[in-house]
Design a protein around this nucleic acid. Structure first.
Lengths: 259, 259
DNA sequence: CGGGCGTTTGAATCAAATCAATTGGAGTGG
DNA sequence: CCACTCCAATTGATTTGATTCAAACGCCCG
């Protein structure tokens, strides 16, 4: 079976996978659908919850690990990074958030956030009191669908992160990270051919389970292979001429013998 | 700062952590509280949802990736493993489930499960139609708290997995895996001094981002260091004389210079 | 202009993967 | 009951990808 020999890391197939090939025009359609979904969701929230709105700037903490849970937050613009904090001091970046994404789900179970969220650029955060949200759900059932959808989506994204970290070599992990970023921008109708990473190499490394040096080397390699191009001066701005090429790069790394 | 020099892997602190030391009697109390929580939850589900009950056996698939989403599943007994399937055929084990845990959240957002769940031993699964659950929530508000709590808990657990895989060396990852297992049994009032792993080394490796050989070596090392002991004949049964010692082992691996 | 931080790059090292051989248990059929 | 196969697991030898250590560069800001 294919997947057994494919990965340079770990494992043989255990459940047996249905391989579904990717196709480009469908991806574009999916992206438009996502844009619509996010727009509708924000409208619904605005209309039925009248959330208080807060402008945040780069470096501002939106919610703090350990704080008492009361609110959920929805990002209306800008982007944010989420860190999970272990009792022993370890910090792990566990997520990236863009317009339409929700923050703070991790606090519901225990009544206390386990993650800190920090804005990566100027943006607007909508604050939704959890109790108010529950109350509003009674009157507006679409809200509950939205809420559950977002929690579900977050769970699925965590699965993808884990898959990335567990099955991909360093270069591919970085490529996938960039693809994710570009896709996220694309889905929100933002330019994704020229992106500015608001994360240091160290932060990217933390997210991907790599050291900053390895991230730097991988980016240099991707640039050498013409999958990305750095801006003249700032090595944090980069162009992605072809996002699908990144996907192909990841796939190639899985089957080095078959290419 | 401590955490920067501590980890042999990755990174320097980015947000700044509040270090909260662990303490043993509190852990025991927490475990009892969890047992109560799970018992209450199962009662609530039984009472207000009257779910259909299904006995499953080792190897049975509870839900299949790709299938249309309709139901959530609650494990009443037994244990199950969850695999996320990528389009390219990669399989990643992303979770372990025990009594009281819910399955299928990943399907809500897209209307289609992205994970396959397989029973690891004989147990009972309660099938809850998602729509029926939503309807019941209106009459029984505690249900919605339960549901959200479980989704939230799952998100937090994924964070822990990612932290494990990204920050711990192989031996510590295996130790943490065993600790997690023992804790899960403990919280459910089951014996946890003598456990039988229903997973092969390959599956553990897949879960932890390691090869089966590395898992085997790590287990042997843990046995050599007397943190675990194998049963006479079967290398899948093992004893954990002191669960806290596993925690200490993980901590030591983070600060090899300071011990 | 100079200091500081983020980044790049090289060289040496190391942890984990790979390759390979062996053991041992479970199950099968003679 | 034993011989046989099959698969899981262990263990050793070797390779390799990523980390670590170190040095140098370049951008930004005071």
């Amino acid at each position: 079976m294919l997947s057994g020999s494919a990965s340079s890391y770990s494992t043989r197939p255990i459940v047996g996978a249905a391989v579904t090939p990717r196709d480009a025009p469908a991806a574009a359609e999916r992206s438009r659908a996502t844009a619509r979904r996010i727009g509708d969701a924000m409208q619904l929230i605005a209309r039925s919850l009248a959330p208080s709105r807060h402008v945040v700037h780069e470096g501002d903490t939106i919610c703090h690990a350990g704080q008492r849970f009361e609110n959920l937050y929805v990002l209306n613009s800008g982007c944010a990074k989420i860190f999970s904090l272990a009792g022993d001091g370890r910090e792990q970046m566990v997520g990236l958030k863009f317009r339409g994404d929700w923050l703070g789900f991790d606090g519901i179970a225990t009544g206390q956030y386990t993650c800190s969220t920090v804005a990566m650029d100027t943006g607007e955060v909508w604050v939704v009191r959890y109790q108010a949200l529950l109350d509003a759900c009674a009157a507006q059932p679409a809200l509950i669908g939205l809420l559950h959808g977002e929690m579900s989506r977050q769970i699925s994204r965590e699965h993808e992160s884990l898959m990335s970290v567990c099955t991909l070599p360093a270069d591919a992990r970085v490529a996938e990270f960039l693809r994710l970023w570009a896709d996220s921008l694309d889905e929100r109708g933002l330019r994704n051919d020229q992106i500015t990473l608001p994360l240091s190499r160290a932060e990217i490394g933390n997210y991907l389970g790599l050291t900053l040096e390895t991230v730097s080397r991988s980016l240099s390699k991707l640039a050498r292979d013409k999958l990305i191009a750095f801006a003249e001066r700032r090595r944090r701005d980069l162009q992605i001429p072809d996002v699908d090429a990144l996907t192909a790069y990841v796939q190639r790394s899985l089957a080095p013998t078959l290419q």
